Simulated scan of single mutants.
Amino acid sequence: MYAIISDRTNQATVRVGDEILCDLMDDAERGSTITFDHVLLIGGDGGVKIGKPTVAGATVTGEVMRMERGVKVTVFRFKRRKNIRVKRGHRQSYTRVRITDITG
């Protein structure tokens, strides 16, 4: 069984046992459970359920593994012949979640 979930701005296809990276959840602690209720699609042996926009009564449950930081992204801006150069970096913070159950 698999599901497509929407977590704020990201969508992900998940199965039981998968680990996904979600945007940082400050209130989540390691070992706690998170319920994703924005399930867009559920598929499996019984067929496919497509939500309009979400599948009614469907939930995906996950366990918080740890907090992580992504790779560093470097942004470099310049204007030619003007001696203007700006170098900036950014590292996004993520929460790693292991999917434990899909219901619906």
Rank of each mutant, 00 (worst) to 15 (best):
G51M: 03
T61K: 15
H90D: 06
L24F: 15
E19Q: 12
Q92M: 06
V71M: 13
G104T: 10
R88Y: 05
R30Q: 14
K82T: 08
T100H: 01
E29Y: 03
L40E: 00
A12G: 04
T95H: 09
I20Y: 04
F78W: 08
F78P: 03
I84Q: 11
V97R: 04
V55M: 01
G17H: 12
I34V: 14
T95F: 08
D27H: 12
R88M: 13
V39P: 09
A56V: 08
R98N: 01
E68H: 05
T59G: 03
M67E: 14
Q11W: 00
K82G: 03
G104Q: 09
G43S: 04
Y2A: 02
V14G: 07
G70W: 04
C22M: 13
M1I: 07
R98F: 00
K72G: 12
V16R: 12
G51D: 04
L41D: 05
S93M: 09
I34H: 11
V97T: 06
F36A: 02
V14P: 09
S32F: 00
Y2H: 07
C22V: 14
T59M: 10
Q92S: 11
A3P: 04
R30K: 15
T9F: 05
L40M: 12
K87F: 00
V73Y: 12
I5L: 07
P53Y: 01
V48I: 14
L40G: 01
V97P: 01
T103M: 05
F78R: 14
G31C: 06
I42Y: 01
Y2C: 01
T33N: 08
R91A: 09
N10G: 02
G43Y: 00
V14K: 09
D37Q: 09
